[in-house]
Every structure is written in C-alpha cells, then in structure tokens.
Amino acid sequence: MAKRRLRVMVAKPGLDGHDRGARVLARAFRDAGYEVIYTGCHQTPEQIASAAIQEDVDLVGLSNLSGAHNYLYPEVCRLLKEKGAEDVTVIGGGIIPDKDFQKLYDAGIKALFVPGATLESITSWIDQNVSPRE
C-alpha cells in the first residue's frame, strides 16, 4: 500500500496578476514531494473553497499582493468552514503588515509568510504542521 501523498492548493485570490511567487512556490512544493494544484490568478474565495473541496487538498496556500488580504483570506476560511471543510489548513503570503497578523490568525489562517521568507522555511513549516488527512 502506498503512503498518502500530501495534496496542496496554491491559489491567488483577488485582482492581482503577480503570480511569479505562486509559481515558484508550486515548483518548490513539487520538489518537496507534494501534489500541487495551482488555480491561476484572479480567483474568488468561492472558487478557491469549492476547488479545494473537489480536489480534497490538505492545505490551501493563498497569495495576494494587492493589499486585500484582510478581506480575501478570512473569506476563504469562512467558506471552507461553511462547506464542512475546516480541517483544511489555510496559510497565506504576500505583503502583509505586522498589525494585520493577529486578525488573520483569528480568522483561521494558520501561518503567514512575508517577503524574506525562504522556500525552506515554508516547506519545513508544512512538513511539521500538516499531514495528509486520514
């Protein structure tokens, strides 16, 4: 019997077309042995939550650089919960001021990675905190 493979989704909510970072992350996740579903840019929180459930992912990584994280990230968490998928871990990245961190954690975001975070720091956080759901 094969062991469970971690499935993660890299998603870009909102009106932001800067997806170089998201693509680099997708590549790093592939190299870490995860199966990565990339949604592309300009996604609504509804599209992301719905796709995350259809794909049965363990983790959703959100990337947004337009400053709309305070609305978009909690909304993804809320929709996942509404659809009975609060067991999906949600993390976020982007240009996020320190003062917003607590608000996002309170909304259900489990970790935030801002400019300067290394790829290793992100994959090692995932390896330590997320495992494929049984």
């Binding site: 997708a26 590549r27 592939r30 190299d31 042995g33 990565v36 990339y38 796709a51 794909e55």
Partner: peptide
C-alpha cells in the same frame, strides 16, 4: 520527488 504540479484546472 514524487511530487506533481497539476495545472489543468
């Protein structure tokens, strides 16, 4: 790595 990028979606 055994990983994959699933981009069709």
């Amino acid at each position: 790595s055994g990983g994959a990028i699933l981009g069709d979606r």
